[in-house]
C-alpha cells in the first residue's frame, strides 16, 4: 500500500531542498503525524466499510443461506443472483430501471440547484418586506413529518392527471420544495463577505448579475454538496415513486428491488442483495466523481475576506 511510500517521498523531496537541521526535525515530525493520520483513517475506514463488504460477499450467497449462514463468507458461492437479476423482472430488463432512476435523479439535480440557489439568494442577500416571515415558513416546512401530507398531495396530482408520470417526482424539485437545500445554500451565502457584491453594486450591477457572476462561483462547494445529496436521495427515494408510478416499466430501482420479495409467498434475498449492490454502484461513482470538486471549491480561488 502507498501508506508508507507517500510520506517518505515527500520527506526526501523536501529534505534535499531544505537541508537545514531544525527544519528537518520539523519535517520529520510532520511525516510522523502524516503516518499516524493515515493509520487512523485506514482503521476507521475498515470499520465503516465492513458492513458493505459483508453485503458484497452476501450477493454471492444462494438465497437459502440467508437464515442459516450469518458469516461473511458464502458457504456455496454462486453468481446465480447476478445471472438472475441481469435478466430483469417480468419482462423488463434491469437497465431500464437504472435508466428510469438516472433520468429522475438528473432532472431532480437540475431542478433543485436552479430553484434552491435562486431562493437562497433572495433569503440571504435581498432586503424586502416579508422576507423574515417567508424564511420562517420555509423552515416550517421542514418540521412536519411528510406522511401526513402524502394524501392531499396525491389528490392534487391525481386531479391534475399527472399520476403515472414522472411529473409529481420532478416538478417539486424545480419549485424548491426541499427546504433543506434552500437553507443549506442560505447558510453558505451568508458566510460570503459582502465587500464584493457591494463593490459590484457601486459599479451598477443588479441582483441578477451579482448572483450569477459573484455569488454562484463562490458557493460552489454548497452547490456540489446539494447536487450530490439530491442525486443520491432521489436515487434512493421509495415513497414518491411508489405512490405515483403505476407502470412497472417506469419503476425506478428502489421499487424494482423490492419486487424480489413477497412475504406472502417466496422471497429471493440473494437477488435482492445483488440488485441493492448494483444499485449502489452508480451513486458511488457519482460521488467519487463529484467529491473532487469539493476540494477545489472556494479555497483555491481565495476569499479576499
Amino acid at each position: 500500500m502507498s501508506t508508507i511510500e507517500v510520506p517518505r517521498a515527500e520527506f526526501l523531496e523536501i529534505s534535499t531542498d531544505q537541508p537545514a537541521q531544525p527544519r528537518r526535525r520539523r519535517i520529520k515530525r510532520k511525516t510522523v503525524n502524516t503516518v499516524i493520520w493515515m493509520v487512523a483513517l485506514l482503521a476507521l475506514t475498515a470499520i465503516v466499510l465492513y458492513p458493505l463488504v459483508w453485503m458484497l460477499f452476501a450477493t454471492f450467497k444462494p438465497s437459502s443461506e440467508f437464515g442459516q449462514n450469518p458469516g461473511l463468507m458464502p458457504e456455496n458461492p454462486t453468481v446465480d443472483n447476478y445471472v438472475k437479476v441481469v435478466e430483469g423482472i417480468a419482462g423488463t430488463p434491469l437497465w431500464r430501471f437504472f435508466a428510469n432512476s438516472l433520468f429522475i435523479a438528473v432532472m431532480a439535480v437540475i431542478g433543485t440547484l436552479f430553484s434552491s440557489a435562486l431562493a437562497a439568494y433572495a433569503f440571504a442577500r435581498i432586503k424586502f418586506r416579508g422576507v423574515g416571515l417567508l424564511f420562517a415558513a420555509m423552515i416550517g416546512t421542514l418540521l412536519l413529518p411528510f406522511h401526513v401530507i402524502i394524501i392531499p398531495q396525491y389528490i392534487m396530482f391525481n386531479k391534475l392527471e399527472l399520476v403515472d408520470t414522472y411529473w409529481p417526482l420532478i416538478l417539486p424539485k424545480f419549485l424548491a420544495t426541499e427546504a433543506f437545500f434552500v437553507f443549506l445554500i442560505v447558510q453558505f451565502i451568508r458566510n460570503i463577505p459582502r465587500d464584493m457584491d457591494e463593490a459590484a453594486r457601486i459599479d451598477g450591477a443588479g441582483h441578477l448579475r451579482i448572483f450569477f457572476s459573484i455569488i454562484l462561483p463562490l458557493i460552489k462547494p454548497a452547490l456540489i454538496t446539494s447536487a450530490i445529496f439530491t442525486f443520491i436521495w432521489t436515487w434512493n427515494d421509495f415513497l414518491g415513486p411508489l405512490l405515483y408510478i403505476n407502470t412497472p416499466e417506469e419503476y425506478p430501482l428502489p421499487i424494482a428491488l423490492k419486487l424480489y420479495n413477497d412475504q406472502t409467498s417466496t422471497s429471493d434475498y440473494g437477488a435482492t442483495m445483488a440488485v441493492s449492490f448494483l444499485a449502489l454502484l452508480p451513486i458511488l461513482i457519482f460521488f467519487i466523481v463529484f467529491q473532487r470538486f469539493l476540494v477545489d471549491g472556494v479555497a483555491t480561488q481565495g476569499l479576499k475576506g
Binding site: S2, V6, P7, T34, M38, L41, L44, T45, V48, L49, Y50, P51, L52, W54, M55, A58, F66, P70, I232, W235, N236, D237, F238, P254, L257, K258, N261, Y269, T272, M273, S276, F277, A279, L280, I283, L284, F287, I288, Q291, R292, L294, V295
Partner: peptide, 30 residues
Amino acid sequence: NKGSGFFRSSFYAPSLIGASVSVAIVWRAM
C-alpha cells in the same frame, strides 16, 4: 490531502445505501 478522495468516498459510502431490506439483513447480521 493524500488519498482524500478515497477516504471521503469510503466514509460516505454507508450513506449511499437506501432504505431497502438489504440494510435490514446486513445490520442484523452485524
